[in-house]
Design a protein around this nucleic acid. Structure first.
Length: 106
DNA sequence: CCACTGACCAAGA
DNA sequence: TTCTTGGCCAGTG
């Protein structure tokens, strides 16, 4: 049977370990959806509040949170990441944190 | 089918 | 490093 893209993205995001992050692009690739990074964001944006999915561990390719700093969403995500021990340097997350290059463990 | 949008990305200037 | 451009592709109206 064919698992929906939505479900595969959901699955991949749920696998991101605490204290680590992954980019939208990485999630898309690991879900087998090479150029669908935008859809990852789309799926997360439609996520219900009690999903239990670690959506905050997904950031953009520049190592930054993909929300305007002025938004409450930005602070929310940043707080959740800080709580997991992830460091921010000038609002950017160092490579060592999203170094979850276990992409082939799908 | 067309036009527009989006929690994206990579390459250039 | 910041801004622009072109490319991606599924949703939506």
């Amino acid at each position: 049977m064919e698992v929906s893209k939505h479900a595969r993205i959901w699955q991949v995001v749920s696998m991101i370990p605490t204290g680590k992050v992954a980019t939208y692009g990485q999630v898309a690739r690991m879900a087998g959806l090479k150029n669908h990074s935008r859809m990852v964001g789309s799926v997360l944006s439609q996520l219900p509040p009690h999903s239990g999915l670690p959506w905050h561990r997904v950031i953009n390719s520049k190592g930054r949170i993909s929300f305007p700093q002025s938004s409450p969403q930005y602070n929310k995500q940043k707080q959740l990441l800080l709580a997991e021990g992830i460091k921010f340097i000038a609002d950017k997350i160092p490579l060592s944190s999203y170094q979850w290059h276990a992409e082939e463990s799908a």
